[in-house]
Design a binder for these strands. Structure first.
Lengths: 197, 197, 197, 197
DNA sequence: TATGAATGAGTATTCATTCAT
DNA sequence: GATGAATGAATACTCATTCAT
């Protein structure tokens, strides 16, 4: 059901998808929906959480690993890209605070923050263990990375040339969060130094 | 009026802002709104266009300049960040196709594409003239850059620590779209110094 | 419900009867109406069809009979008069193309045409079998007959001196669609005498 | 102006023609309309009266003539048909009581009654002077005649095969209000033959 | 004479939600 | 567990009409 809902929200938008539409797509009647959820917003929340769990899985995987931070970050970013590319992508990116009750809104905010903090932590760890070209401002880097990934929701089509993994790797490269091969470390050293001031 | 509307949309969301709300905020009655716009969606479109024009101004400025592509890109990105940070930021980022009629939706798509193409062009030009560390995939780079900038709409607050310009410059650095260290450092030193302040 | 709607339309006019009025008359709330109809125009259409079905019943009855065309025509005309005199009369006569969507408008046009063709057919048959004083132009005769009948909707009141049947017979006489003088005068004398009283 | 209004009402219907539409068609602004009329309904009333005057002219002409009633009736009926076929036809037939204020509604009713009475008077006179095949019920005959004529507003197109005059004559024939058989058959034979082709 | 701006009162329609069955 | 029926509250949009200029 959440899958169907997520797809509908993605195509029509949350506000343009009525519970009638949803019930129709699911082949049940409207009141039946209320046996499974309390609210329309609960559906949105479930979509959000489902998509998010994929990223959290990545985070836990990364935390469990003792690979260098660079690789651990890559794990998360790939899961992130996959989540955004999935049917739940839309809900995660566009679920707006204003459409939700205060409780749910803050629940979502907490979950979003969890990811944000996870990304920052990994970036910092990468700077520390030298596996990532030292990021001057981990917070800004995390925002940029998340932004680029979230924006996939607007342009990425699963049937396109690139897989979600390729996009993820491309972003890591672009952000200077890719591997610090010998060749590039020196080359960009100056730039990153300047930035960190 | 569009400014008031843009602010309202930003705070409450498009669907949660009724024309009654809007009229109330403007201190006029609802039918008065219809003297100036045909539709609710036209208001959204105007907001979108207003914000977008700021970026297009940047694009034209960049096109008119004969500075190296790196600097021309910086001009655009700063205008972009400023636009997103403005009251029209929300509308530009979140105006959804599904909320608009087909004509308006495609008009918006065209305008968005114009910017996307502009960014790609500058990135390619920067690779060509050597002022930018060669991007492997200009298309992906443009998406990432736009994504990071658009995402500002979700986290940036004007009263925060960073100015929109600082965010813009930070992103350029992060994306490896900043100056190529050795070759251009000397040449563009002045510019980058200004930037880093 | 259609009956109530038909009465309201008759008294106040279609455009002067709001769905609020209708809901009030039915003792339900407005959204309840939308459980049973899709549109306001669908209500008008249902009224139209209900009234029309009475005439079509007459047409089928006439087609099934092997009486002379004169009598078959009388069957239809009486049903027609009864329909116009009924609560649905107004809707049938005044439902305007301009108030309806293209699909419904053409659906109504088709139904109207069905009746028109039926009348012409019977008039022609009457000319052929000699039971009707030969009409010079069956098409014009059908228009005149329908016009006279439809106009009842403007002046006929059920509580008036004449029954709908009497009006129908009077019209048939007047239009020269009554019995052919010599052949039928004797036979149908009683009926026409009754009328003239 | 009334001509333009009448045409607009005919095409779109009274309720579907806004004063904005009307002003647009006339190339003036809305408030300008209010320099010439007090009300929207006054426009409708003017249309009604303009069309009606054509019929009243016929009535006066008929009253002034000392021809046999049969011929005097023909004068009126032809003017009637011409009026219905004109741009003002729609307004005359369909202007509904419910759309008008009480005063105007009763003014219109009076004018309509004037015509109705005129028709009855002529029919009675024709029965009296023997120029018309005696109608059993002049009132019903007048209603039928008026109904047939009014209904022209629904099917008559000026560019069609028949002129309004031909329709008028055809109706007179059909209604037995044509020439009394013996006296006039020879004289009007030509006309009716033409019709039957 | 003409109008740009404004509006009060409505109008059809939608939707999330409930409840008796 | 499932549903048909019902609804309160809104929502975008319209229109005849007015009035200061």
């Amino acid at each position: 059901m959440i899958l169907t809902a997520a797809r509908a929200f993605q195509q029509r938008g949350y506000h343009n998808t009525s519970l009638d539409d949803l019930a129709g797509l699911l082949g049940v009647t409207k009141p039946t929906l209320y046996h499974y959820v309390r609210n329309k917003e609960e559906i949105l929340f479930e979509c959000f959480r489902t998509g998010l769990d994929q990223i959290r899985t990545g985070l836990r995987e990364a935390d469990a690993s003792d690979a260098p931070a660079r690789e651990r970050l890559a794990i998360v970013v790939r899961q992130y890209a996959a989540a955004i590319a999935s049917d739940f992508g839309w809900c995660m990116v566009r679920a707006e605070d204003q459409d939700l009750s205060i409780e749910m809104s803050s629940a979502i905010k907490a979950l979003k923050s969890e990811i944000d903090q996870g990304l920052r932590r990994l970036i910092r760890a990468g700077s520390a263990d030298g596996s990532i070209a030292a990021a001057q401002d981990p917070k800004l880097a995390a925002f940029a990375l998340a932004g680029a990934l979230n924006w996939m929701g607007h342009w990425y089509r699963p049937d396109a040339a690139l897989t979600a993994d390729q996009v993820a790797d491309g972003f890591l490269e672009l952000f200077g969060l890719g591997p610090t091969p010998k060749a590039h470390r020196a080359r960009y050293n100056g730039a990153s130094k300047r930035l960190s001031q």
